[in-house]
Design a protein around this nucleic acid. Structure first.
Lengths: 343, 343
DNA sequence: CCTTAGCACTCCTAAGCGCCGAGTGCTAAC
DNA sequence: GTTAGCACTCGGCGCTTAGGAGTGCTAAGG
C-alpha cells in the first residue's frame, strides 16, 4: 500500500506543522503550505484517506488531524530527510569537549548529557560505559593506615574504581605486594565480566598455598565487582519535559519524573536499544516498556576504539522535531567517539 | 504580647489540623477537636483575635483559617513539643547504615539522602562533606602506562580523589617516588584549603633545585584542588513535591525543579544555614533566597569526630509536619554522626 | 462579663447553558 | 479530478445559578 506523491506531501506538511505547533492541523493550513497548491477541499479528501489508512488521527470530529504513531514512523522512515544543524548547535556541541582529553570517562559522559539536553531542550540520557565489558589493566593496594588500605582498579578504557578495605594486620608490605603482583599478572587483559567468582576462587586457592591471609581482600574484590555489574545512567534536562505541552497535567509529569528516578529501569530500556545501527528511533508503543509508550526514544551507540560501550539518547513526547534531533544526536555521538578514542 | 492558654490551644489545633488536611480550618472543626470544649462561636472570636495578631490568615472572607508564617513559627517554637518516631521509621533509618563502616563517605551521604526523602516523603538534600576543610593524609602517583599516571589524594575524613595526569617521560620511577614522598611530607596534616597556590609555588621552587620536570604534575594538582573547592549537594526525592497539594500548578513545580538543578545555589542555601545548633528551621521568608520563600527548609549539621562537615536537610511547603520531620532529621543526623566517626 | 445560639451575609465552587468558531464531510458544479 | 458551497459537529469559553461552608454580629443565657 504505497502512498501517492501527493499524499506524501500532505502527510509531510501535517507532521511538520504539528511538530511546530502541537495543535491539530486543519485542511486550510495544509492548503496554505508551500508546495501544495491545492484547495482545502481536495486536501480534506486526501486527509480522510490518510486517516483511514492509519497515518493520521482526529482528536474529535470537528478538529484537524494529528499524526498517528504510524504517521510519525512513515515520516521518519521516508519523508523527513537529513537535518541540518545551526552554527550555534555545532558550536555548543564541539565546545563541550574542549580540553576534555584529560578528563576521566565519567566526566565526559556527564558533560555530554548536559550538552545534549540543553541543545535539544529535551530530556537526555546516557548509559555510562559498561564497566564489566572493559578489560582489566591493573590493580593496586595503597596502605592508608595500620588497618586499612585502598584498592584501585584500572581498566583499559579509562575506568578507575577505588574502594577502602580493611587489611589483615599480619600482612607485611612485601607479602601484600607479592599478592597484588600475582593478581595483576593473572587478571591482565580479562574483561571484568570474565573475573567470575569461580576464577577468583581458583586464584584464592592458588594463593592459599603461600599465604592464608587475604581472605577479606578477596571478598571485597568480589563485592566491588558485583556492585559495578550495572552501568550508571546519567540524566540531563529532566525538567525540560515540563515545557512540553504534552505534559500539562501534574499526573503525567509525576509519571515521567518517577520513571526518571528508576535508574535500573532506564538502564534496561537503553540496553534493549543498544545496536550497531546508526540511530534508533522508537515511537510510542514501539517501546517495550509501558511507561514510555506515549513517548519517543531516540538512541545511538557510542564507542571507544570502535567497540560499543554504551548508548546515548533523548526521550520526549512522540511529537518532536525528529529531523533536527536526530542530526544533533548523530553529531554528538561522532564527537563523543572521537573524544573517547585513544588511537 | 503573650498568648493566653486558650489561644495557644486553638492555634495548636488549627496548625495541627491544617498540616494534616492542607485545607483552611473552620471554627466548627476546632470546636470538635480534643481538649477544646468550647462552642464554635467562641472559637470564632478567638480566631479573629489570632488573625489580628498575625498568627492566622484567611484565604478569603468565607473560608476557614490557615496558619500564617508567624503562626508556624510560634507553633515550632512553643507549641509542638518533641515528636516521636514510629518503629518503622526507626528501622528504616537504622537500616541505612547497616554494614556502612566499610563504605566511602560519599556513598554514605548518598544513602542518607535517599533514606531521608523516602521516610519523610519530602525532598531532602545533603551538602557533601567539604573536601577543602579536611586534612591531607597522603598522595600517591600510580604509573598507568608510559605516558600517564594516576594521582590519588586521600584525606583523613575519608575522601579519596583521583585524577589521571600525563607524566613527563624523562622522569624515572625513583625520581617520581622522591617527589611524591617530599610532597607527602610537606603537606601532611594541612587542610586542603591551606594548600594554596603560593604554597604550591614554594614547593615547586624548592623541588626545582633538584628536578625540573614535574611542572605539569603541579599544574594538575592545583587544578584538581580548585575544582573541588565547592562541595557537592546530593538530592533525594525531588519528585516528592509533586505529591504536595501546594504544588498543583505546573508553573510552581517547574520553579522548584529548576531550583533543584542549580547545585551551586543549593550549596549556598545550605551553607548559610550551617551552624552548631541542633536543628535549624527556616519558614517562608525567613529564608534569604527568594525562590524558596514559599517553602520551609529544615537543616541540621552532621559531624565527623565532632567537627562539622556539612549539613543535611529537607525542603517542602511551609505546611509540613514539623514535629515529626524534625524528629526524623534529628535521629538521622545522630546515626550519621555515629557512622562517620572513626573513634 | 464571658459564652453561646441564631441568623444574615460573603464568597468560592461546580454545574448547566448557549454562543462562537474551527473544521469536517458531502454534494453539486466546473 | 478539483473545487466552491453549505450544513453539521463539537470543544472551549464565558455567563449564570445553586449550594455550601464559614464568617461576623447580635442578643439571650449562665
Amino acid at each position: 500500500m504505497k502512498l501517492s506523491e501527493r499524499k506524501k506531501r500532505i502527510l509531510h506538511a501535517v507532521v511538520a506543522n504539528h511538530i511546530q505547533t502541537a495543535e491539530p492541523v486543519g485542511s486550510r493550513t495544509v492548503a496554505r503550505a508551500d508546495g501544495i497548491g491545492l484547495s482545502s477541499a481536495t486536501i480534506r479528501n486526501e486527509m480522510a484517506d490518510l486517516e483511514e489508512m492509519g497515518y493520521l488521527a482526529q482528536p474529535h470530529t470537528s478538529a484537524g488531524r494529528i499524526p498517528s504513531q504510524k504517521g510519525y514512523r512513515y515520516y521518519v522512515d521516508y519523508l523527513m530527510g537529513d537535518g541540518r544543524l545551526t552554527v550555534e548547535d555545532e558550536l555548543s556541541i564541539s565546545r563541550f569537549l574542549s580540553d576534555e582529553k584529560m578528563r576521566e570517562i565519567e566526566q565526559i559522559i556527564a558533560n555530554a548529557v548536559k550538552v545534549l539536553s540543553s541543545v535539544t531542550n529535551q530530556t537526555s540520557l546516557i548509559m555510562g560505559p559498561q564497566f564489566q565489558k572493559s578489560t582489566f589493566q591493573q590493580m593496586r593496594i595503597l596502605p592508608l593506615d595500620e588497618k586499612r588500605g585502598l584498592v584501585v582498579l584500572i581498566t583499559h578504557s579509562g575506568f578507575i574504581k577505588n574502594k577502602v578495605i580493611e587489611l589483615d594486620q599480619n600482612l607485611s608490605p612485601a607479602e601484600l605486594h607479592q599478592v597484588v603482583s600475582y593478581l595483576n599478572q593473572k587478571l591482565y587483559g580479562l574483561t571484568i565480566d570474565q573475573v567470575t567468582t569461580s576464577l577468583i576462587n581458583e586464584l584464592k586457592r592458588d594463593l592459599f598455598r603461600r599465604l592464608e591471609i587475604l581472605e577479606q581482600a578477596f571478598v571485597l574484590l568480589e563485592e566491588s565487582l558485583r556492585e559495578e555489574r550495572q552501568a550508571r545512567v546519567f540524566l540531563g534536562g529532566t525538567t525540560n519535559i515540563l515545557t512540553q505541552p504534552e505534559f500539562r497535567s501534574v499526573k503525567k509529569i509525576h509519571q515521567m519524573l518517577s520513571l526518571f528516578e528508576r535508574e535500573s529501569l532506564l538502564f534496561e530500556i537503553l540496553e534493549q536499544n543498544l545496536t550497531e545501527d546508526d540511530v534508533v528511533v522508537r515511537i510510542g508503543t514501539e517501546n517495550e516498556h509501558e511507561d514510555i509508550q506515549e513517548c519517543t526514544l531516540i538512541t545511538a551507540a557510542y564507542k571507544i576504539n570502535r567497540r560499543i560501550l554504551g548508548s546515548v539518547g533523548i526521550i520526549g513526547p512522540t511529537r518532536m522535531d525528529y529531523q533536527w534531533i536526530i542530526a544533533v544526536l548523530r553529531r554528538l555521538v561522532e564527537q563523543l567517539n572521537r573524544t573517547l578514542s585513544t588511537d
